[in-house]
Design a protein around this nucleic acid. Structure first.
Length: 553
RNA sequence: GCGCCUGUAGCUCAGUUGGAUAGAGCAACGGCCUUCUAAGCCGUAGGUCAGAGGUUCGAACCCUCUCAGGCGUGCCA
């Protein structure tokens, strides 16, 4: 709708150049947007303001010229007026708005999707937590965000792959192996000292306990080195399996799980380092190899291979991102905890070092979650092992509420997650507010059916939808595709949660003002048609976020 | 010290990428259920957009500085 109008305006401006009423010949970059106040029309453009300088004319005079040409040119437009310093306000015909409803019905579950992505291959990599412990609530926000962004991009026409990068190489796996081994030995009666830098959580003891029942004292007899290695593998596999289960319960499924270790096994780390050396981007100093990230705007260069010959995680990152592009992805999106924001320049450096644009890597930073219970902070500390896991949260408040809460705020701002609020079945709780709207509509359809009204999709007189609440709803529905698109390209799923609350609010207002099932069959049919469209749109948006649209509540 | 992020109503946050009189939800106050789900609706009140300069027709948004908070700044991951 907006784009049609924009095209129409630009067309008339070109017309003005052609017949000499405007002379600059410079086509302005104009905005067409929904004004904050309804009295300013359905849409407004700043075209005349933008052209004032180049045309050396007063904005209002330019607006006059454009408006005079626009008259009668489009069957969308009811009226046009010039306002304020030179805005052109458009009032569209109600019939133009109502066309949205037919589009929604014909597109159904596809309504809102677009093809701006043009099939571009994009990988969204998210969660990627070390397999050294269960997912905690912070990972949950990353999971919800990554999954929603992936869905949004898919809906915007991108070819999306979801990937989990498993950090199964390096130090932390040894620490895991040692942690399990020590607990295992403890259970077998050995008195051992459990170091502070080992993983303290009870899940380590659980793994050790299982190992005792399964293997008895078999691994008490082997060398320490062999024991650590064995339990690192055992623990890593078990924990990863648990992570996968927790994610599935949360409604997140990955297309691919990518092992860091495989990069080493397949020689990809060496190959990546060699490639960068070949490009002169890696140099040696004090026995270590350094990557020239400063060349790409980083504060300092970063070590790739330490002087003891061991590679850093950064070397893996080079190899991993090189591999992503080698696999044919045009665009790589990484979702990180915001505490890693310092790594943005060096990762952008990798991508540029690979000969690509810095924009080929998109990074979404997800801020901390502050867990509350009735407004009181819940103590969380990874150190002591007393963190709140994603599973606990999902078990307590449910998948839908958890996902909605995680997505309610811009990802780079901190989030307060109140467990009691998330469970409350009242208006304070936005999840229920939105889901209730959907369930209420379904319930109306049920009642309608009992009273002999079936949903009609043909021959419905939509012009009967003319009161304020109905028109507001229709307009709100028509915004959905734009909201979806901007939400996708900006990685901002929170816009969808806001939109959902507005759409649900529009419905609830309508519901309280007007009866759907009336004595007049034509009006009833028109309103059912409208609500059918609301239900489709609510369901489409909720589905995108991984939240259910319940039939009844 | 340097770098990044944040600062909008009492609280939690939006603000369509620079547009017109800055918006929601909680909380507060006042109303609405014999009628399709009150898990709902309507109304009132609430603001120096941290502060100061600058850019221009026009700034919460862009630039500079100051203040406050958070995070980062390893040959750790």
């Amino acid at each position: 709708m907006k784009e049609q109008l924009r095209a129409c305006i630009l067309n008339e401006i070109e017309g003005c150049f052609a017949d000499g009423t405007l002379s600059s010949g410079i086509l302005p970059t104009i905005t067409v947007e929904k004004p904050a106040h309804a009295e300013h029309g359905d849409f407004a453009t700043n075209a005349a303001l933008q052209m004032a300088k180049a045309e050396r004319k007063a904005p209002r005079a330019i607006a006059e010229i454009i408006v005079s040409r626009l008259k009668g040119k489009s069957d969308l437009i009811e009226s046009v007026e010039i306002a304020g310093p030179g805005f052109i306000n458009f009032f569209l015909k109600p019939s133009a708005w109502r066309e949205t409803l037919n589009r929604i019905v014909s597109q159904g579950a596809e309504y809102g999707k677009s093809s701006v992505g043009a099939g571009k291959k994009v990988m969204v990599e998210f969660v990627s937590a070390n397999p050294t412990g269960p997912l905690h609530i912070g990972h949950g926000r990353g999971a919800a965000t990554g999954d929603a962004v992936a869905s949004l991009l898919k809906a915007a026409g991108f070819d999306v792959t979801r990937e989990y990068y498993i950090n199964d190489a390096g130090n932390q796996m040894n620490t895991l192996g040692l942690s399990v081994l020590l607990r295992y030995l403890e259970l077998l009666g050995e008195t051992t000292e459990f170091p502070a830098d080992c993983y303290q959580g009870d899940y380590i003891k659980d793994i050790a306990r299982d190992a005792v029942t399964k293997y008895a004292d078999k691994y008490q007899k082997v060398s320490r080195e062999e024991g650590v290695k064995f339990f690192a593998k055992l623990g890593g596999d078990l924990i990863l399996k648990g992570i996968d289960e927790d994610l599935q319960d949360f409604g997140v499924r990955f297309d691919n799980w990518f092992s860091e270790q495989s990069l080493f096994d397949e020689g990809k780390v060496d190959a990546a380092v060699k490639e960068m050396q070949g490009k002169g981007l890696i140099y040696e100093q004090e026995g270590a190899l350094w990557f020239k990230t400063t060349q790409f705007g980083d504060d300092k260069d970063r070590v790739v291979v330490r002087s003891n010959g061991v590679t850093t995680y950064f070397a893996s990152d080079i190899a991993y991102h090189r591999d992503k592009f080698a696999r044919g992805f045009d665009w790589a999106i990484d979702v990180w905890g915001a505490d890693h924001h310092g790594y943005v320049p060096r990762l952008k450096g990798i991508v540029q070092g690979l000969g690509r644009s810095a924009d080929d890597l998109g990074i979404i930073l997800v801020q901390l979650v502050a867990l509350l219970r009735d407004g009181v902070p819940v103590a969380m500390s990874t150190r002591s092992g007393e963190f709140v896991t994603l599973k606990e949260v999902v078990d307590e408040v449910g998948r839908d509420a958890a996902r909605f809460f995680f997505l309610m705020r811009r990802s780079d701002s901190q989030l307060d997650f109140d467990l009691e609020l998330a469970k409350r079945q009242s208006a304070d709780n936005p999840v229920y507010y939105v889901q209730y709207a959907h369930a209420r509509i379904k319930s109306i359809f049920e009642t309608a059916r009992e009273r002999g009204f079936e949903l009609k999709l043909d021959g419905v007189d939509l012009s009967l939808l003319d009161n304020a609440e109905e028109m507001d709803l229709v307009k709100k529905l028509s915004q959905y595709p734009e909201v979806l698109e901007s939400s996708a390209v900006n990685f901002e799923p929170h816009r969808i949660t806001y939109y959902l609350q507005e759409l649900a609010g529009g419905f609830h207002s309508f519901y309280n003002k007007s009866r759907v099932i009336t004595e007049e069959p034509a009006l009833t049919a028109a309103r059912l048609y409208l609500l059918h469209c609301v239900a489709i749109t609510l369901s489409n948006a909720l589905t995108l976020l991984g939240i259910s649209a319940p039939e009844r509540m």
